[in-house]
């Protein structure tokens, strides 16, 4: 069991980093799409109907899916003042509390976005714009996926806490 969990943690870590690196490509594509719209509209007098929605969608995807990478690297922003006050042993206990609090919050967020996500899967919602893309449906599902992904990485981090293989808790980075 211990071994199995350790394997889960390391596979999850690698997966999160892989997705995180993939997200960087999405940001890059987003920059290109926005710059291209400027060129099309100003240079060629042919504004596109897709650029705004596409940039938004690419960016939102990267925002949400970066969560695994950010969690794996312990880069969520927090206040770590008490670490010095309470000393390393108590702080280690606090680390667990922090991880569990994150699990609770993200679990309830996942439950909150569950119904809207299921609703758009049953009946897709479109943007209603000229492009009329599936963006609103996509974003609702994306958020649910992001929450689940976040939870999966949190489980990996909790495993590491119990097995004392936590990565540098970079001072609340």
């Amino acid at each position: 069991m211990r071994h199995l969990l350790a394997r889960y943690a390391s596979i999850m870590d690698r997966f999160s980093v892989f997705v995180g690196h993939g997200c960087s490509m999405l940001f890059f594509a987003c920059i290109i799409a926005s710059a291209l719209e400027v060129a099309m509209r100003y240079g060629f007098d042919r504004p596109t109907t897709w650029s705004t929605e596409l940039s938004m969608t690419l960016c939102a995807t990267a925002w949400v899916l970066a969560v695994g990478y950010v969690t794996e690297r312990n880069r969520h922003i927090s206040i770590t003042m008490l670490e010095i006050v309470v000393g390393p042993r108590v702080w280690r206990f606090f680390r667990l509390v922090q991880l569990l609090a994150a699990v609770v919050a993200v679990f309830f967020l996942a439950r909150a976005v569950w119904a809207p996500a299921m609703k758009v899967i049953a009946r897709p919602e479109y943007s209603g714009t000229a492009m009329n893309s599936l963006q609103p449906s996509y974003l609702k599902v994306l958020l649910l996926v992001g929450c689940v992904f976040h939870l999966m990485q949190l489980v990996a981090n909790i495993t590491r806490w119990f097995q004392r293989t936590e990565k540098g808790t970079s001072g609340g980075h």
Binding site: H76, I77, S78, I79, F94, A102, A105, V106
Partner: peptide
């Protein structure tokens, strides 16, 4: 926040 829970959480 004081016990170090990430701010977004």
């Amino acid at each position: 926040m004081a016990i170090g829970i990430p701010l977004g959480i």
